[in-house]
Structure formats: C-alpha cells, structure tokens
Design a protein around this nucleic acid. Structure first.
Lengths: 391, 391
DNA sequence: CTCGTTATTTTCCGCTGTCAATGAAAGAAG
DNA sequence: CTTCTTTCATTGACAGCGGAAAATAACGAG
C-alpha cells in the first residue's frame, strides 16, 4: 500500500484498538463486554479503545432494544459507523472492469462496469482510473471521503509490494500496480490476488466470520481457492497458493492448458464444460449459459458433463478438507448459475472422498454476483486502512 | 498437558522471553544482536530476557571464536544449555514402543525399544510406563531432572486436551492419554499426533528451522503429512489434518481400505507395494524389504511398482505445493530405505504436476531412523515446557 | 595511549492492559 | 417511593514490557 497524499489515517491508537474495531466490524453490533470476551481483553480495555473511536466517528452506540435481560443495567451496543469512510474496489476481468463504491462496512453503494479496450497495463490503468473518477464523484455527492482503493487481479500478486508478478490472463509481468494507481488516483492503493480478496471479504463480512480456518472455492471461468488457516489468509512462498484448479482428479482425463491431464479446471471450468458439452451432444454451444440450457433441457450428454464436473469439484474440495481440516468450505463463483446441475454430485463426491472426520466439514454455497469480486477488492482496502500491518 | 507434581516450570518471565529462547534453541548459537534481529525485538529486550535465563542455567554464553570481525567489540554467542533439562519421547507403533531420552536441545541420549504385548490402552500404557521408568533411571544417572514426557500416537489426537480421539491403528477411542500417563509417571505429559510431532521436531530442530511454511511427508507403513503454515503446525477443525494419504491420484487405481480408489496410500504405502510387487512378479514377498530387494535386483515388474508409487507421491506433494505454496517439502519415513527406487519418479511427477511458481518449492529428503518418531514426541514435550500456550 | 568501531548494557520513559473499586441503569421487593 | 440486587460500564492506580538513546565494554589500528 502506498499513500501519496496525506490522507488522515485510521486512529488505531493501540494494537488492541484495531483488534477491537475489527471484532465490531465483522461480528456486528456487540456490547462492550461481548467485544471484550471475543477479543480476549478486559472490559476496561474495550471501554478505553472504544471512546476515541466513537469520538472520531468510526463507531457509534445504540441502546440494545432487542434482548433486554430481566435484570441489571441494560447493555448498549457498539457498532461500526459505515458512513464514516468510503472505499473503492476494482476488479479487472478479461473484457470489463468492475468497480464498486462501498462504505466502511463493505456494503456496496454504487457499482459500475466499463468495457475494457485492451489488456496492457496502460489501457487497464486508464480505464480503471476513469472508473475510479466516476465513483469519486459519487462519493463527493455523499460528502464522504474515499479512504482507500483496492484492486484485485488474477494471478501471482505480491500484496505487500503492490506488484503484479505475473498474470497469465492479462499477460502482465512485474507491474507495480499499486504505485501506478496511487499516482493516477491519489488514493492509498492495495493490490491483491482476486481470489484472496474475495476470501478477505468472506472472512470479515461473509460466511467466514469468526472462523480460524476455512476455504473459498470459486467455480467459473477458472477454479480458484482461497484459504484461511490460523485466522490468516494463506499467501504461499512464491505468491502462488490455492491453486486448486490444477489438482489432478483423473490422470486419464482431458488435457489441461497447464500441460497435465485431468485437472479440475480441465473438467469443470466454464470453458471445459462448453467444450465437453459440445463434444458430447454434437451441438456447438457458445458459452456456459447455453451449455447449462442444454443440461436443463434434460439432454443426457450435457447432464453427464455437469455430473463429471461436480464430481471433480467435490473431490478437489475433499482434498483441501483432508489436508487442512477447515471448519467450512464456501463454494461460490459465476458457475453457480448452473449450480443445481452439479450440487448433488459435489456433495456425493465430497462425502466419498473426505476421510474420517474431515467429512464433518460444513460445505455450503453462496451465490456470487459479479460485483462481489470488486467488493473483495474493497475489503482488502478496508483491511489495509484499519491496520497497516494487514496480513 | 497436565502436571501432577509441582515441577519447577520454565521461567518464561515474558512472552518475548520464550520467543527469544525459542530463537536461540532452533537457530543455534547466536549473538544477542542477531537474536534481536531474528526475533524482531530490540537489543535491549534481548539482553534483559537473556540474563535471567543464563542465571537459571537455561542459556550459556561463549566467546565467538569463529568469525571475529576486524573491528569493534567482539560478540559473544548465546546458546542453549542442553544439559539443563531432559525430556522423554515415546511413540507406539503396532508392535513396539520406542522411547528416547533427549536433552533440552532434543539430542537423543538414550533410545530404547520394548515389544508391545497388546494394543489396548492399558497394555500400551503399562509398557510405556515401564519404558519411561528405565529412561528415568538413565536420567538419574546423569543427575538431571526430566522435565516432560511427550507421547506420539497416530490418528486423531487432541493435543490441547491430551486425548486420543480415535486411533484406527491402535483401535482406541477417546482415551485421555495425557491424564493417564501423568498419573502413572508423575511427569507433565504432552500428547500429539505422530506426524505432527515429527513436524514440530523438523520445525524446531530440523530442516524446517526458520521457515514459516513447509510440509513434512512421511512414506512408510502409511503416507502422512505434517503442515506448517504461518509458522504454526496445522491442526484442523476436527483433529484431522495432513491426510495426504487419501488424496486421490488415480480414480481407476487400486481400492484403498478407506473405500475409495487410487489413494496415494493404496499405491505407495509399504503394504500396497508388497501387494503390488507380489502381484506383478508372481513372487510372494513378505515385506517391504523383500519387495525393494526384487526391485534392486532389476526385476521389471517390481521396478514398475516403485515407479508408480513415486509418481503418486510426487503428484500428492505437488497438490500440497499448489494449494499452500510451502517454502520446502521434506520427504521422510521408513520407506526411504528404498528411496533410490522412487526418487526420480517423485521428482518428475512433482515437476510435472506443480503449477507455476509452486514448482520452485524446495523438495528434499531426509533419512528417518525409527527413533526419530520418538524424538518428535520429545520435541512436543520441549515445546510444551517452554511455553504452555504452545500451538 | 587515543580513536574508531561494534556489541552490550543501562537508564529512563511511555504505553498498554489488568485489577479492583466505583458509578450507572434498570427491575424487584418491601 | 425507597432500597436491593444485578449487570454493564468506567475510572484510577499500577505494574510490566519493550523501545530509544546514552553509556559502557572490548577490541584493533594508529
């Protein structure tokens, strides 16, 4: 993250302060005592940390009108004042840039899409800057400052340095995106891998709240996986992590562009499904929607392809569960539009391939509107804003 | 861990103290300044933490006779005084209990094996107690107290509670081993899964020193995997973690006792290899040593079995590397006696199946004398001794 | 013997978070 | 209507930790 202009920073007076703020942010309105319990601190520490945050407008206090106990002084709830600061999240896909304006609680206020003329860094950056400008105008209309910009890119991204090491999709190598975007927009910029960004959003604002270990599996154009272990998002040694897409599911399966056979991605990605459905039915389908249409119409060959895909995904998830013992697996992604076609197969394959108590892992799905990718980017910006030592 | 008798605890005056001690313990003799750098603390903090530890005899100071610089005050090296305390590690296998007596630096001083009459908790505990008694006598001879007992068991073990949840191998369920052993021996007891224990030993005293993410893969009677992520050993949600043995490598492969087909363990474990070599050569081999003998003699069918086994292991390791991006993978285990038979195949399969920069992961092997399993158990005891909040 | 240089120690000093005591805001009891 | 009881929140005193900077130590080179 780099901050070119002197934006007033988050008043994280103490390390406990940011921890307390994070607790309130992700676990919703809580009484001070409850915050103390969950953060493992004394009530006194919470009181002290909360006061300046309320003064600065980051937290607010409500009476707890809900579950009032029969006895004792009623608790007052502390919640994050979402309107205190805004954030922008940007995600570049192959042909579009998606941008969202969110509040501090990562709720999407405005979403915008702009078609992408070309994929080179300059074009993408120019288009992204345009999008950011539009969203900054929206923010101005709200009269709230934008405190950070998050950018999510697929591939090998070094978040600490803000550099895109290698993105096969965009054909980028060693692009110092954070620096460039910070110069262009004047905002503090956080850059991260797209799936990891989505995982951060789940960890703080989604189905991963409060869990110390979980996995996010995205099904769509590619098959991705974000991992949280020991309460932290995993970023492996060489930037690569969560490459579930190239777990071998069937050494005799179709050839994958990575050079191997039977990768999950070669069986269950949109592209693979289109190819296989075309081959199996003799109908030349153009995209995943058409392929799903055939399957929904009951065409046996197409249904068979989805069955195999679901099986592959289920096995891959079981592999993750066997290795890491996550408390939960969240299946998400654009591919979920056709989720009914593989849901059962995923469940069956997972149940079969999960070993021992790994089978107890809670596997659930979550629809993923396309804007969510950009929201993930915004979540990384929020994370960076709250604690500069993020991740 | 439970401590029945009041054994004088480790004087971890501060949280930084144990961190500093751990740094010196695993990174060998270091100057104070170097310790400060590696632990991310100030030199003053190191000086302060070191003094009482030297007074208590846990640390010692040497002149740095080695690389003396041309200029300035020569540094003095701080090292752990291994002789300050002893530890016992015990590992139960199918037919034998192995016990080691180690010093504080986890160097094996005495190793003992006792045949195991039966596998029920009472028999195992009785035999283990006998072994511990023998080792305590050895320790008495050295005039140093034994500060802890570590026990390693295969299966689902809850280290925090000291309970063996389920060990298929021993056919145990919910055995409160730590409590039982503490009552029997009067020592503070730590109980952990055997592969995790081995991983702790590598992390503190072996090839994992200083790495924040690595994997230990054991090849032998079973195929196991210990993982370190974010500098901590992974223990999944339901005790199960690192189940690399049941990663599916070939859905058309041989049936595994877990019910699936083509698990790594069904292809590369000792038992699987014996079975496959027997089938391929027509010779009824009795154990892994005979199987390896045939292969070493150049019998094609046997060599082929090892090739497939190496391939399966290499793919499984690649899966781990793709998912987690470890800095290193350490291959170990009794199966390494025949390592030359699959080494090349492991490397080839890994190189093929590792995706992108995951292929840069350093894959190395390490011979594993059988005593090492017990040493791993001792390492967990040392860890518990140093910081009660271990893991 | 004095300097320059690097390692270690000492001397403050501020910050953080805990403890224990106190205040506040109810409903309950009389 | 007053006083208790109960629970949540706040305050003040305090101790410990670790950092910064200054002081000290140990050596080789002039």
């Amino acid at each position: 993250m780099s901050s070119p202009t002197a934006v007033e920073p988050f008043p994280a007076h103490t390390s406990a302060a940011s921890q307390i703020f994070t607790t309130v942010l992700s676990q919703g309105p809580l009484t001070r005592l409850e915050v103390a319990r969950r953060a493992g601190l004394s009530a006194a520490a919470v009181t002290r940390a909360v006061r300046p945050l309320i003064e600065d407008g980051y937290l607010a206090e409500d009476a707890d009108e809900g579950a009032r106990p029969a006895l004792g002084r009623p608790a007052s709830l502390v919640r994050v004042n979402g309107g205190r600061a805004l954030f922008i999240g940007v995600k570049a896909t192959g042909d579009t840039i998606i941008g969202v304006l969110t509040d501090l609680r990562c709720r999407i206020l405005v979403a915008r899409h702009i078609p992408l003329p070309a994929r080179d860094p300059k074009s993408v950056l120019g288009t992204a800057a345009e999008l950011v400008r539009e969203l900054l105008i929206e923010a101005d209309g709200l009269g709230v400052r934008v405190a950070g910009l998050g950018m999510a890119v697929s591939g090998d991204v070094d978040r600490a340095e803000g550099v895109v090491r290698y993105s096969p999709f965009l054909e980028w190598r060693d692009v110092p995106l954070a620096e460039l975007a910070a110069m262009t927009t004047g905002l503090p910029v956080t850059v991260d891998n797209d799936v990891r960004a989505l995982t951060v959003a789940e960890q703080w604002f989604g189905a991963g709240v409060g869990l110390s270990g979980f996995a996010v599996v995205t099904v769509g154009a590619g098959i991705g996986c974000g991992l949280v272990v020991h309460g932290r998002v995993v970023a492996g040694a060489h930037g690569v992590a969560g490459e579930i897409g190239h777990v071998t599911v069937d050494p005799a399966g179709p050839r994958c562009h990575c050079g191997n056979r039977g990768c999950v991605e070669a069986i269950a990605s949109d592209e693979a499904i289109v190819r296989q459905v075309s081959a199996a039915t003799g109908v030349q389908v153009a995209d995943a929607v058409e392929a799903a249409g055939l399957a929904h119409d009951g065409v046996a060959g197409a249904r068979e392809v989805y069955a195999r895909a679901g099986d592959a995904i289920g096995r891959a998830i079981a592999t993750v569960a066997n290795l890491l013992g996550p408390e939960r697996v969240i299946i998400s992604g654009e591919g979920l539009a056709a989720y009914d076609l593989f849901a059962d197969h995923i469940r069956d394959a997972f149940a079969t391939a999960a070993f021992g108590s790994a089978a107890q892992c809670d596997v659930r799905t979550r629809p993923l509107p396309f804007d969510e990718w950009a929201r993930g980017a915004a979540a990384t910006a929020i994370q960076s804003f709250i604690r500069s030592d993020a991740n």
